[in-house]
Design a protein around this nucleic acid. Structure first.
Length: 855
RNA sequence: GGGCGCAUAGCUCAGUUGGCUAGAGCGCUUCCCUUACAAGGAAGAUGUCGGGGGUUCGAGUCCCUCUGCGCCCACCA
């Protein structure tokens, strides 16, 4: 127990208490507690790229308040931390930080030194380095970033058990990721397929539906006539189509119109000639064609957009591929396309090709009118800079209901087994699952990630047999198939006919982070632990990744365990700029969390976070942080004040020792607050708990403490003074504990002045009375305080000090209030410096106040 | 096009099963060094509860409708 400082201060308490909690192991998970005594949290592993931002502070604080509450309720809290360090963000950051790029054809260089450590100059040409060298740099940078993140999150006061740390690229995660996937493969929940896929031409990788977004981009309709062929019953002539992608004419495989469209019905089944390139394509009917769009008839290319894929598949059309994986027009023309015309665009980028084709159309008088500019949504990879193309490639998929109505319905129903906070977030989940149009693409053509643990046997011609993949035994995991050989083969058979070849790809980062409960809970590695924490109690996360992280975790858990991965999903909102726009990281001069911690104190920043209600977008507000600092400061000061009165004498119980009705009224009010705050926390509503606690706290400081402090000083009435001391300490202890989840540092500091162990391990307060036997009449104090307020008003209006004496106070009140006034009479006289107090009968509560003029 | 959310004081927001004169903080005005706190305290002003209609003894709260803002989703040539 420390001494009460003369001058309480918030300065420096973060470092002091963080170090103390670390060395005491305050937040260590007790793995011997049975499942029902555990509260387990599926912490979001932050992407370790760049710096901690306010969004992290906001949502991680929310989770931490729940963790701290549950711990105080006696639960063994399983609160791990992970780093999501594999995947594209890390690759991109490595490129930018070291000025390098990965080129798998480069040889490995022992002891490679990157050209830069830290931002290279803008004009620097990235140095091509081998994949192993690139991965070494990934590891190096990730290490640096993770240390910074850990420091910042400790400074934020998260009650994480840091011994439960993991990283999505570490060996355990790779093992879990590969094991889960292999089981998916074995059970038929994962499969590989050669198919058209959304493709980012800069990252040169396939991307999943969930990572795709629409962006409004300028484009232009080009109206182009297609010549009817001689066999056409409609005779010679042309059909005009509108397209925004004239560069894809060479990839055209058909035209399509709606089956009911009378304008085109006569032409269905006949052919037209594609301008410039000469291939003959059929005119088809399909109900996805919209008669009122463009000219009502569209050109189908392989592939311009996802509708083309649908048409291509459903109409059983041929394929004419012209766009390569680098986004350039392939050098080899597709079949039946005019070789000379094609040669003029071969090798060009899509943009260049469009320009060339339009010029050629104009020259050949094949463009009807001018191109008409429009704004239209174009599909982008969410991290990408150029529109997605569609290329055909072999990829791995995990079934997620996108092609199977039964599975889809099952996964939608799983959403109903989770309790959502706030409840309406469930709609987003259902909305997404019901809108899926394909399985989950998990393979990526990248470098830094978990390798797909698969090989393919090579036949006598050296061709891979994709439908008979070679799977490693689980005991070998993790494997890297690019350096490990499959069972029954030796390394010198790699790439040889009759030998094997490795799957060259890695998993998308979500394929691993969808297993965070399994990774953190050491699935299949520590069965005892896993039993105690899974399914987890809580999944905290932001609402924008319901379609990715939440849904993918649900899918994996459903496949592997046939259950939901957690009981509760707690969604936090966005941080908005003070002008209510979504806060953007790109704004250079955004304040950093560390600056705010130092300016206002961590508790103040947490207070702002804790005021943001679950799931609600919240404006960034330094004003709120100032209020939080005031609150934390007040907590220290009122603690000092209450404690300095000393402990009440004797060893009486609360019920026995709190004799004054005013004191019992205060404790009865406190009871109601405890009940409300407890219910709010049980419902994951930290903000409501904070608000109730805070409102009571200010009332307590401004009114109750002011009212009873005279009596507490009064040595002539020891029983009455003791009653106040007991009540003050009871309330103080309860409030310190109720603030502890939000203001862990200030609460611990204040608590430490009169307790030996941490407030964060103290029991959550419970009411002094209960419904059947309330501790007191909570309204009793209100009358006295109303009169006190009127006295204060009189002094303020007279521009006198609050200390000024009142010569006489006449209170008129209905007889029903006499008892209440009587109960507070002595306290009122003390607090108001009242020399003479009379109570007379009246219809309503009113006062006549005469100030003394002798001070 | 489908779905969800929001709209209360100048600002940020409470207002939980419908119930007395609609609340808090910030900001603003006035006053006060008072033995916890001047990084403090006391007091004050400020509202067509987005519009309209309905149910009810009674609606910020429930129902319908309109408007505005935001978000999510969708196969927009």
């Amino acid at each position: 127990m420390a001494n009460i400082p003369d001058k309480p201060t918030l300065d420096g308490i973060e470092d002091r208490w963080a170090a103390q909690w670390d060395s005491d192991g305050t937040y260590r998970f007790d793995a011997s507690v049975p499942r029902e005594g555990v509260f387990s949290i599926d912490t979001p592993p932050p992407t370790v790229s760049g710096s901690l931002h306010m969004g992290h502070v906001f949502s991680y604080t929310h989770t931490d308040t729940i963790a701290r509450y549950q711990r105080m309720r006696g639960k063994a809290v399983f609160y791990p931390m992970g780093w999501d360090d594999n995947g594209l963000p890390t690759e991109r950051r490595v490129q930018n930080y070291y000025g390098v790029r990965c080129d798998p054809s480069q040889p490995y260089v022992e002891g490679f030194e990157p050209p830069f450590r830290g931002d290279p100059p803008k004009n620097h040409q990235a140095v091509a380095i081998s994949r192993p060298n690139f991965l070494e740099l990934c590891d190096e940078l990730v290490e640096i970033d993770e240390q910074i993140f850990e420091m910042l999150l400790k400074r934020l006061g998260l009650s994480v058990d840091w011994s439960l740390k993991y990283a999505t690229i570490d060996e355990r995660s790779r093992r879990a990721s590969q094991r889960a996937f292999l089981r998916n493969v074995t059970r038929g929940e994962a499969y590989s397929q050669e198919a058209p896929t959304l493709w980012d031409i800069d990252f040169r990788t396939a991307v999943a539906q969930a990572e795709m977004e629409d962006r409004e981009r300028p484009g232009a309709y080009h109206k182009i006539p297609f010549a009817l062929t001689g066999t056409n019953p409609g005779g010679t002539g042309t059909i005009e189509i509108d397209t925004t992608r004239p560069e894809l004419l060479a990839a055209c495989v058909a035209l399509v119109a709606h089956p009911d469209d009378e304008r085109y019905q006569p032409h269905f089944g006949t052919t037209v000639t594609v301008p410039l390139y000469g291939q003959q394509v059929e005119i088809c009917a399909h109900e996805l064609a919209e008669p009122d769009k463009g000219t009502g008839i569209a050109m189908i290319c392989t592939f311009g957009d996802t509708t083309d894929v649908t048409w291509w598949r459903e109409l059983n059309l041929p394929m004419r591929t012209i766009i390569g994986r680098d986004g350039r027009i392939l050098t080899e023309p597709p079949h039946d396309v005019d070789v000379d015309a094609y040669a003029t665009i071969a090798g060009l980028t899509v943009k260049q090709a469009q320009k060339t084709v339009v010029e050629q159309l104009v020259e050949a008088d094949l463009l009807v009118g001018e191109p008409r500019p429009i704004q239209h949504p174009v599909k982008f990879y969410e991290r990408g800079d150029r529109p997605l193309e569609i290329v055909t490639s072999r990829q791995w998929y995990i079934r997620n209901g996108g092609r199977d109505a039964d599975l889809r319905a099952t996964l939608v129903a799983r959403g109903g087994e989770v309790e959502w906070h706030p409840a309406h977030m469930r709609h987003r989940y259902e909305n997404w699952v019901e809108g899926l149009n394909g399985d989950w693409l998990v393979s990526r053509q990248r470098f830094f990630g978990v390798p797909i643990p698969i090989w393919y046997p090579l036949d006598e011609q050296g061709e891979p047999t994709y439908d008979a993949p070679l799977l490693p035994d689980e005991s070998r995991l993790p494997v890297d198939p690019s350096t490990d050989a499959p069972d029954g083969y030796s390394e010198d058979q790699r790439g040889q006919p009759g030998g094997f070849v490795a799957d060259p790809d890695i998993f998308d980062t979500w394929a691993t982070s969808s297993l965070t409960p399994q990774i953190a809970g050491r699935w299949e590695e520590d069965g005892d632990l896993f039993e105690r924490v899974f399914p987890m109690d809580m999944r905290p996360q932001a609402h924008d990744i319901i379609r990715t992280w939440l849904f993918s975790t649900m899918t994996r858990s459903h496949h592997e365990f046939g259950c939901v991965p957690w009981a509760h999903a707690a969604l936090s909102g966005w941080i908005l700029d003070p002008d209510r726009k979504k806060m953007s990281k790109s704004k250079g001069n955004v304040v950093t969390p560390l600056d705010l911690f130092e300016t206002y104190g961590t508790d103040a920043v947490r207070y702002w976070s804790g005021s943001g209600r679950p799931g609600v977008d919240t404006a960034f507000s330094e004003d709120q942080m100032k209020v939080g600092r005031k609150l934390a400061n007040k907590l220290l000061n009122v603690t000092k004040f209450v404690l300095q009165f000393g402990a009440p004498s004797g060893d009486r119980s609360l019920d026995d020792g709190v004799t004054e009705p005013i004191d019992r009224a205060m404790l009865a009010k406190l009871d109601a607050v405890i009940v409300e705050a407890t219910a709010a926390f049980d419902a994951y509503d930290y903000a409501r708990a904070l608000e109730r606690t805070e409102a009571f706290f200010w009332w307590f400081c401004d009114n109750y403490v002011e009212l009873v402090k005279g009596r507490t000083y009064d040595e002539s009435r020891p029983d009455a003074a003791d009653s106040a001391k007991r009540a003050l300490r009871e309330a103080l202890g309860a409030m310190q504990r109720m603030f502890a989840p939000i203001l862990p540092f200030a609460a611990e500091e204040a608590w430490s002045w009169w307790n030996d162990s941490s407030v964060h391990l103290a029991a959550w307060p419970s009411p002094s009375g209960d419904g059947a036997a309330p501790f007191g009449d909570p309204s009793l104090a209100d009358v006295t305080i109303e009169v006190l307020t009127q006295v204060r008003r009189a002094k303020t209006e007279a521009k006198r000090s609050q200390r000024a004496a009142v010569e006489s106070l006449v209170v008129s009140a209905p007889p029903a209030l006499y008892a209440a006034i009587d109960a507070g009479r002595n306290d009122l006289v003390d607090a108001g410096s009242i020399r003479d107090l009379q109570v007379v009968d009246g219809d309503t509560l009113a006062t006549v106040i005469t100030l003394a003029d002798d001070d």
